[in-house]
Design a protein around this nucleic acid. Sequence first.
DNA 1: TGCTTTGGCCTGTAGACAGCATGTC
DNA 2: CTACAGGCCAAAGCA
Length: 679
Amino acid sequence: MRVADLPLAPEYVEHFEREGIAELYPPQVAAVEAGVCDGDNVVAAVPTASGKTFVAELALLTADGPGLYVCPLRALAREKYEEFDALPGVDAGISTGDYDSAASDLAANDVIVATSEKVDSAIRNGAGWVDDLACVVVDEVHLLGSPGRGPTLEVTLATLRRRAPEVQIVALSATVDNPEDIAAWLDAELVESTWRPVDLRVGVHAEGTVEFDDGSSLSVPVDAGDPASDADTEATAELVRGAVADGGQALAFVASRREAERLAERLSEERLPAVADGVDRGGDGDGGDEGDGDAVDNRETAAVEVAAELREAGGTETGDRLAETAERGVAFHHAGLSSDHRALVERSFRDRKLSVICATPTLAAGVNVPARRVVVRDQRRYTGEGTEWLPVLEVHQMCGRAGRPHLDPYGEAVLVADDREEREGLWDRYVTADPERVESKLRDPAALRTHTLALVATGIAGSQTEVLDALGGTFYASRTSNPNLGGVVGDAIASLIDDGLLAPTDAGDDAGIEATPLGEQVSRQYVTPDTGVRIVEGLEAVAGMDPETVTELTAFEIVCDTPDMVDTYLGNAERAEIYQFARTRSAELTTGMTEAEDFEGWLESVKTARVLTEWVDGASVEELVAAYRIGPGDLESRIERAEWLLGAADAIAEVVGVDMPAFASARKRLVSSTEEEDT
DNA sequence: TGCTTTGGCCTGTAGACAGCATGTC
DNA sequence: CTACAGGCCAAAGCA
């Protein structure tokens, strides 16, 4: 099937042909046959990089009205927005927490790109564009199974379909075990395929040999030279070296940030391309010695450019080390990096200016960074309940990053094992195993509290029966003949009434409920009910405090102690000092040292509050990062959240009727400190 | 005695969505 | 019932 055969306007056909898309990939053909261009609902469970974006574009361009593209990450939203906006005659808009497109009138856009939470929030705040949609594309729909965010996605989709029953739904999923269940929920045709544009072989390394799933094998010379590093790291380094020597790029996945940095530093010391050539250039020999010297030189020049860009983007200790490794073509990547550095690393790798990225598992879920070879050194990860095996789905996503269409002849993914015995284990667990099933997490009490409140606050439901009715359209309900959510929803309603977020209506016959002004504000501000409750408690404490002692620190402490703030690790070495700080400033805090039910957690929030206080008082990123042992990216995320939560707290203070100007002033100072930093 | 190896204990650990309303070079 | 690797320090090993 060719692009020209599709029911597309000529300018689109021309556009796609210019982009090199002439012939459709098999999964795309299947999607067309399933009806993506005819307004039919389709679920496509296909590997990453098998042309999902094009399927999305087909649905959006052939839909009879405006379309919405929902995805899980802001960085992905940005990427798709730019892609859609480049389509001829398409006016695209974007709406995420950190970025709204300049044309704020989303109702006028042909395509809107948004994160799932932003869509949920838009519904809660009565955004007009929600009702006019003809088509909704949901990317990474398997996230339905994610405990934190899955319920939001399913409730949001249920609400969208309820409001516009005719809306076309196109859901794109990674390969999962039960895509048919998702398709059944959405009344969609299922398209399933494992086809990829580049061949991929997956293997497991043990004791110097990689055995691949296609029966081939590869021997990896074990360099026993460096006793300082273990066998897994040696094998990883050698596999990376091999890919680079071959003119390819490599991704190496490890479990922690520190390991990612260590591996990158180690690899960068080797002068990869030169070593890979088998030529020991020692310290001097810059003279052109081989025929492929040019390629190496170009790569080196490009890497030096990247390092310069990284240095320009902001100097911290982490950033300097990153620039140093990048200079030799190797970068590390994790969430502790500033967002500028992260984006730069991703982009430079995509532009082939870097040879290697050593990363924590997140890189697999983020923006598109394909490589010739992927090496998964660590398959476990710390989770708070000890180290756990990574989900099969996640490892498959890492492996799926191997192989760049048109650039690599094939992709290779290698899991590194300790010994032969473990090779068997990894083989069974990841190579031959099916990915996990996707199951709804809506039954979780916290999720139900959030969404019950939202349904009532937006006027969708006015009683327990109506809440259950609204939830009838969720993935959860479709998965069971007897949802039996009644009891759990009843509990959620009772607890929300208890917290003053809902109230029984006067009519009182059918157990009618409505949101209190507080509940309405909590829902609109998009904070969880528990956060709302914590803010109210804080305000009650403030009302009893001497106004002189209500400061910005008070405001920061309240919002940092809510569940919507990320917690900050409190090291043993600094615990005493933070404790001391809390004691000397106790008059400004809403929680007494003895009354915190979770003392450790509270002390962590005091640490976060202290960091933010110093930030607004003019401390630099560099100083804070050094003093509190957090990454620049961690500081960014806390500032961003504090900004949001202080705004929410300010709105809640007004509803509750407590005068707390510190919320607004702290927020204003945060915003201006951030702007100052930018200049 | 001095240098190296071994053993045991302590420490630290992945990631990232969301509000709202204006003034601005 | 549930981790575990890396770093540090001190004690033991060795010439």
